[in-house]
Structures are given as C-alpha cells and as structure tokens.
Amino acid sequence: MNSNKANRMSIFLITCCAVLMAGILLGLVGYILYQGFSHISLRFLTSDASAFLAGGGIKNQLWNSFYILFITMLFTVPLGIAGGIYMAEYAKPNKLTGFMRSCLEVLSSLPSIIVGMFGMLVFVNFFHWEYSILSGALALTVFNLPVIVRVCEDALRSVPQDQRLSGLALGLTKWHTIKKVLLPAAFPGILTGLILSAGRVFGESAALLFTAGLSTPNLDFTNWNPLAPNSPLNVFRSAETLSVHIWAVNADSIIPDAKQVAYGAAAVLVLCILLFNVSARCLGRLVERKMTGK
C-alpha cells in the first residue's frame, strides 16, 4: 500500500518535471513572439538602427548576421568535413588520435567568451584586422568547428561498412571511395548537422563582442564593391550582429524604445532559428528520400 502510494507520487512528480520543461519552452517562445510580433514590420526590418531616437530598425544587423554566418560557413565546412573524415576514416587508434580527440573536446567545451578573447588577441590585435567581419568569422569558426567535425564523423560512421568494402573491392583507392561513395551516402546527415550548427552560429554573441565589434559603419546597399569601406560586402569593416544588438540595446543604449527594439530583434532571431531547425529536418529528409529513391 505504502510503496504503491510512493510510486504514484513519484510518477506524478516526474511528469511535473516534463510538463514544466515543455511549459518553459512554450512560455519562452510564446512570450518573445507575443512581445516582439507587434514591433516587427517591414519598416523595422529595412531601416537603420538609430543611436538616440525612437523608431530604429535592424536592417544592418540582420544583414551582418547572415553575412558573418556565410563567411563562417565558408571556413568551417571544408575544415570540419576534413576533420570528420580524418576522425572517421584515417585516424588509427594511437596517441595522436587520442590527442586530437582531446583537442576537439577542449574546443567544444571552451566558453564562447574565451574564444572571443582569443580572437581579439590573434585576429584583432596581432594581425591588425581590427574589429571586423573577418575576425568575427574566424572566431566563430573556432567555436563551430568541433560541432561540424562531430556531425561529419557520426554521419560517416553510420554509413554501412559494406559500402566501404565494395568501393575498395572495385579497386578504388581509399580517398576515391571516401569522395565518391561515403561522402554522398553521408550527405543528408552532414547537411542536417550543418544547418543546425548554423542556427547556433547565428545566435552567438559573446564570441563576437571583441572580434566583430559593437558598431556598424553607414552601409550603402548600392555599393557592392567588396573593398569599399561602406560596402555591405567588405569583410574588414566592423559589424554588429542581431544578437549582439539585442545585448547592446539592453546594456548601454539611450534610445527610448530599447525594450521594443530588443523584443522585436529577439523575435526575429528566434524565428530565424526555428526556421533553421525546421529546414534542417525537412531538407535532410528530402535529400535522403531523393538519394535512396524511396
């Protein structure tokens, strides 16, 4: 009788935990979207941020976020996939591999602010790139690399051993087998992982504070010369991203509608990340269906 009561009681408590967690998610996303939706408008998305007056937008910040994400992926994807191939196919069980694994573990558990400080030390001060998109993207590459390596390694490991052997049995070299057989087979998994990690990069802020800076020059969206200082494509200009903007508006801004701007920007940020999440799942499934012909 007593144990029965304890059983029912504990199951109730465990269920409460699960309900609480689902409730936190619903409350969080719901609150941000509810508060921010009224502030999102075409004008909010397409006008410049203002320093003193109310009614500033987030055009430049939104562009910077996507542009830094793009440049980061440009560095991360080849490096990360190569790292994943090394870990899954070439690494022999020896000391070097163990060291590499430890390195990835350290990289993935470094706080992002430490990565930002490293970026400041090396890219900003040592290479004299100042606060720039390039410094920020390289810092984010360090931050994102271990994730991509793990995703790629897992995807390659889940390709059946038979495919590896049959490639080799046809007389292909190992590299050619990897390139033409294993990578295509692992592609859906890698793609899903890449898009999910893109969401993580998109929302990252601490690593960018000291590398990409807190300001954006006046951008001229008709000037697409990547060397011009006011061009949106220039990688050597400072760039405030959306998530950094949310922080900066709350921390030390004097605009009267800081709260609304922060909510609006946060709603846009959360929507983008939900979009990344959904598209990762859908694209992964779509590509897999297309490739396996089911």
């Binding site: 699960a18 967690m21 689902a22 936190i24 998610l25 969080l28 996303v29 609150y31 941000i32 508060q35 999910l196 969401g199 993580r200 998109f202 929302g203 990252e204 802020s205 601490a206 998530s243 950094v244 949310i246 922080w247 709350n250 709260k259 922060a262 909510y263 946060a266 940020l269 959360v270 990340i273 939900l274 990344f276 999440n277």
Partner: peptide
C-alpha cells in the same frame, strides 16, 4: 513530445534567455 522541445531550447541564443530574465 520532449525531443523537439529539448532541441529547440538548446538552439535558443543566450541573449534571448538574458532578455527574458531581464523582463520577467
């Protein structure tokens, strides 16, 4: 039910958590 909840919560950026903390 909970797997997607966990995945979305992991993906939400830390500044958004901070903003919620600040205003709630």
């Amino acid at each position: 039910m909970l797997q997607p909840v966990i995945e979305i919560l992991v993906g939400i950026p830390s500044v958004v958590y901070g903003l919620i903390g600040l205003s709630v």
